[in-house]
Write a protein that binds this DNA or RNA. Structure first.
Length: 247
DNA sequence: CTAGCATGCACCCAA
DNA sequence: TGGGTGCATGCTAGA
């Protein structure tokens, strides 16, 4: 039983100070500073109302292609062990999450649909944050099947794009060794700040990918039923920062 | 000194 | 009782 906080001595702020700041920042009702065993946690939020399927991935649509679709590269994330383990969640870089993903008003977060660049999946993730010290920690939940589908391991990458025409996000799994090849073939430096990359207005044609099991037949994402207005990008465009509307 | 983030782990709940 | 969830803890980089 973890009953006391063990300061590592690197910070002059005590845990209680940090927790008080955290409580103030997020206006947590009934919060009192922990000085002993952890407080009992609130009852777990009921997710039933969110109508998330068990697998959190929508049924595989017919094979479709993402060809010459205008995609804006938003950011990439190198996966850590904790991103690919059984917890089925990914920690997102704070700056990128706040800049490029919908603004979260509550820690409960939102459901966000992402098209898979492989053209055969549409993923239903939960984008939320955890209060963390006096800041936030952004996570993408229900990523387990995405990770297993693409056999992702620590060191691999996920790339997040924005499709402004369809007003949806696109997620791509990239193996660690493949990112360099992507930069070479696409001429994109994924390490660049986002505005530098966005200025290129990526015309993305993934058909060169050898590891794609798909048959790109010149269709567009618009050909796929279910990705139109019904796509449940919770927290609609009003929530997007202005720079999402470039182009 | 602070913020960001990877990860540990207490706690909750369904089986 | 085991797995999942939510938050705490500790490490690291940068201001």
């Amino acid at each position: 039983m973890e009953g006391t906080y063990t300061e590592n001595g690197k910070s002059s702020r005590t845990r209680s100070t940090r927790q008080r700041e955290q409580a103030d920042l997020f206006n947590i009702p009934g919060f009192t500073v922990q000085t002993g065993p952890r407080m009992p946690r609130a009852r777990r939020a009921n997710l039933e109302g969110l109508k998330i399927s068990n697998s959190h991935v929508l049924p595989p649509p017919p094979t479709r292609a993402i060809v010459r679709t205008k995609l804006k590269f938003l950011f990439k994330k190198q996966l850590q062990k904790s991103d690919v383990n059984s917890l089925r969640r990914m920690v997102l870089p704070k700056k990128e999450a706040e800049t490029h993903l919908p603004v979260l008003e509550s820690k409960e977060g939102i459901i966000i649909d992402m098209m898979d660049m492989d053209g055969t999946h549409e993923w239903c993730f939960k984008f939320r944050f955890w209060p963390n010290n006096s800041s936030r920690m952004y996570v993408l939940e229900y990523t387990g099947e995405f990770v297993s589908t693409h056999s992702l391991i620590a060191g691999d990458y996920v790339l997040i794009y924005r499709d402004d025409e369809r007003e949806t996000y696109v997620i791509e799994a990239v193996k660690a060794g493949d990112l360099e090849m992507r930069e070479i073939f696409d001429g994109i430096d994924f390490s660049l700040p986002i505005l530098d990359v966005m200025g290129m207005s990526i015309d993305y044609d993934p058909s060169f990918l050898d590891d794609s099991p798909l048959d790109y037949q010149g269709e567009t994402m618009a050909d796929f039923d279910g990705l139109g207005s019904g796509s449940s990008l919770v927290g609609d465009n009003d929530n997007f920062p202005a720079d999402h509307n470039l182009g």
